[in-house]
Design a protein around this nucleic acid. Structure first.
Ligand SMILES: [Mn+2]
Ligand SMILES: [Mn+2]
Ligand SMILES: [Zn+2]
Ligand SMILES: [Zn+2]
Lengths: 143, 143
DNA sequence: CGTTATTATGACATCCACTTTCAACTGGAG
DNA sequence: CTCCAGTTGAAAGTGGATGTCATAATAACG
């Protein structure tokens, strides 16, 4: 699905008249082969190890492009850094965030999603997106 | 319940050996008689209208105290500003945030909360707190 | 009451995570 | 190959949060 996301991005770029560059290729590769939920700084440092000539601003701008293209999602877990995670076509999930070790697990729960829609509907509210994050101690940290 | 919160705060202050000041009185009054979900800046401007001599830093520090005392909760809705809302003893609710007009509605749903606990439990995760926010168009903005 | 140790205040400086600017540099259509 | 729109990276700019510090206010004590 790395292939698939690359195609999505390429299509997005040409459709918008944007150019393919060495930097964007490097950043995309690095992003797709990274842990999920990486901050800009983390990705930048990782890239800089092999490509010292790529600037922070370029990583920053390219991640925004990924988000616009629909292959990345921007998130805030309250640690003061914006993080980007991979997303696939039509995928959605929520998060369990460990307040001790910082690990992030993902989950999906169709029933919760349905109840959200009901709550919203009962107030005439139309949901565009939502965020559900459970903060606490992960299995490891409880031991 | 304005009375009750004032008492909670007073008790907290004396228990910590902190002093009562005119500024803190003014800020507490203003906070308790405000809309919920006010940003520091908003509260500061509101206060400054009647008390031009109260500084931003004091409002900022006092709101932190409210949070520590348990009468306020700090929140982030992704607009880049920290907001504080009133909280009562043992109260909890989640939010519907309008992406057009910025209005914020509150809701509670016991079933959702229960499902969250189940999801967490099934992974050995212990929830300390959570946030659930539904973003979209409020009733008014849909018309 | 004054005295005094302690805490609080507010103007200002600093931090920090982006975000924008801009001159030099491509990518790729023609 | 030419040429221009798009791109890059260093550096400057932003905006909100947080730290600093000299001055002022609180409240306990004698
Ligand atoms: Mn995720
Ligand atoms: Mn609320
Ligand atoms: Zn953990
Ligand atoms: Zn609205």
């Amino acid at each position: 699905m790395k292939r698939a996301k690359k195609k999505v991005f390429t299509d997005f770029m040409s459709q918008r008249g944007l150019k393919s560059t060495k930097q964007r290729d490097v950043i995309l590769d690095s992003f797709l082969s990274s842990d999920r939920h990486l901050s800009i700084e983390e990705l930048y440092l990782k890239i800089r190890a092999k490509h010292p000539n790529i600037g922070y601003a370029t990583v920053y701008r390219t991640l925004k492009l990924f988000a616009e293209a629909g292959i990345a999602r921007e998130m805030q877990f309250g640690d003061g850094q914006t993080r980007y995670e991979h997303v696939g076509e039509g995928e959605h999930h929520d998060h369990l965030v460990c307040t001790r070790c910082g690990s992030i697990e993902e989950f999906e729960n169709e029933t919760i999603e349905k109840l959200q829609t009901e709550v919203a509907a009962s107030r005439g509210f139309l949901i565009e997106r939502h965020r559900l994050e459970l903060y606490g101690l992960c299995g490891n940290c409880r031991k």
